[in-house]
C-alpha cells in the first residue's frame, strides 16, 4: 500500500510501532521494520550510549529503515539526537515537548522529524518549524496522553496541516486502520498491539494482563499532576487514585510510580507495576509475530477500504 508516508520513509506498509519506554527496544523495533512497517526504538530516559547500542543491535536484525523516539523532557535529549544522527537513523519521532531547537540539526543530517501532537495549534506550529509529518495521538493511547480523542483530533489536524498525518490512539486492527484513513490519516501508529507481539521482550505477566483486559479496564492516573498516564487498572492505580483524591503532593505520587514501569515490563510485577496500555487493549486477544500482526491488519483494512457495499 502506497501513501505519502510510505513514500516519504521508504517503507512497505504505513504502520508505525510506538516508541514506548522500556518496551520499544531493538528486538521489537527490528521485527516491525523487517515486517515492512516502521519499528521505533524508544529512547525514553535511557543514556545516549544505550540508545546507540540499541540502534546497532537493531541494525544487525534488519537493514530496513528504523526510527528512534526522543522524549524531549529528558535533559539528555540533545545528546540522544546527536547519537541518532551519528548512527545514520533517518526518522525521528518526538514526544513530551517541542523539537524546534533540534530541528535544524536534524534537517541538515537528512533526518525526517515527526513530532507527536495532541492538538491542532501544536500541529500547525510543528509544520511551520519544519516537521515532515505529525503523529496525531488521541487520548485512547496508553502511557502519557492528551485530552482529545483520536476520532476528533485526526480530522481536525488533517484539515489544519499540509504534511502527512499519522493517527495514533485506539487503533488495534484493520477496522481501526481503515477508520483512521477515512479521518484523513496517511498512516497509523500502534503501541498496545505490539506490546504483546512475540518479538516483544515484555514480561509474560504484563502481556497476559493486556490479552485478558476488558473494554472498561483502562484507567488514567495523574490528572492532578498535569501529566496523565493511561494504564490497566491494578492495585497501583487504585492506590494512586486514592492518594490523588486525598490531595497528595507530586512527591508522594512520584514515590509510588518510581521504577514502576520497569518493574512491570522487566520483572512482570502486575500488582504494583505500571501496566501502560491503550483503551484498545480489550480488543487485543492474541500474541502474534509482528509480521502476522501487520499482514492481518493490512489485509483487513484493504478489504474494508475497497468495499463497495455496506
Amino acid at each position: 500500500m502506497k501513501t505519502r508516508i510510505t513514500e516519504l520513509l521508504g517503507i512497505e506498509y504505513p504502520v508505525f510501532q510506538g516508541g514506548m519506554a522500556w518496551v520499544a527496544e531493538h528486538h521489537l523495533a527490528a521485527a516491525v521494520s523487517e515486517a515492512g512497517g516502521l519499528g521505533i526504538i524508544g529512547a525514553a530516559s535511557a543514556p545516549a550510549q544505550v540508545v546507540r547500542e540499541e540502534i546497532r543491535k537493531a541494525r544487525k536484525l534488519t537493514d530496513k529503515p528504523i526510527g528512534v523516539n526522543i522524549m524531549l523532557m529528558n535533559p539528555n535529549a540533545p545528546e540522544v539526537a546527536k547519537v541518532v544522527i551519528e548512527e545514520g537513523v533517518k526518522v525521528v519521532t518526538t514526544g513530551a515537548g517541542n523539537p524546534a531547537k533540534l530541528m535544524q540539526e536534524f534537517k541538515e543530517a537528512g533526518v525526517k522529524v515527526i513530532p507527536v501532537v495532541a492538538g491542532v495549534a501544536m500541529a500547525k506550529m510543528m509544520e511551520r518549524c519544519g516537521a515532515d509529518a505529525v503523529i496525531a495521538e488521541g487520548t485512547e493511547s496508553g502511557g502519557h496522553i492528551g485530552a482529545a480523542t483520536t476520532m476528533c483530533l485526526v480530522p481536525q489536524v488533517a484539515d489544519a496541516v499540509q504534511i502527512p498525518v499519522i493517527a495514533a490512539g485506539g487503533i488495534g486492527d484493520g477496522r481501526g486502520f481503515a477508520a483512521a484513513f477515512m479521518l484523513g490519516a496517511d498512516a497509523v501508529q500502534m503501541g498496545t498491539r505490539f506490546v504483546v507481539a512475540k518479538e516483544s521482550i515484555v514480561h509474560p505477566n504484563y502481556k497476559e494482563k493486556i490479552l485478558k483486559a476488558k473494554d472498561v479496564d483502562s484507567e488514567v492516573t495523574g490528572r492532578s499532576t498535569g501529566h496523565p498516564v493511561r494504564q490497566i487498572r491494578n492495585q497501583m492505580t487504585r492506590e494512586y487514585l486514592r492518594l490523588e483524591k486525598e490531595g497528595a503532593g507530586l512527591e508522594e505520587l512520584e514515590q509510588l510510580t518510581l521504577g514502576s514501569l520497569r518493574s512491570a515490563v522487566i520483572d512482570g510485577d502486575v500488582v504494583k507495576g505500571t501496566l501502560m496500555a491503550g483503551q484498545i487493549a480489550g480488543l487485543v486477544k492474541k500474541e502474534q509475530s509482528c509480521k502476522e500482526i501487520i499482514h492481518e491488519i493490512m489485509e483487513e483494512a484493504e478489504f474494508l477500504l475497497n468495499r463497495k457495499e455496506w
Partner: peptide
C-alpha cells in the same frame, strides 16, 4: 500553542516555537 497562534494573528508577527 493556541495562545501563541492567536497572538501571531492579532499582532501580525511570527513567534518561533523555540
Amino acid at each position: 500553542f493556541e495562545l501563541v497562534m492567536a497572538l501571531e494573528e492579532e499582532y501580525d508577527i511570527e513567534i518561533p516555537s523555540e
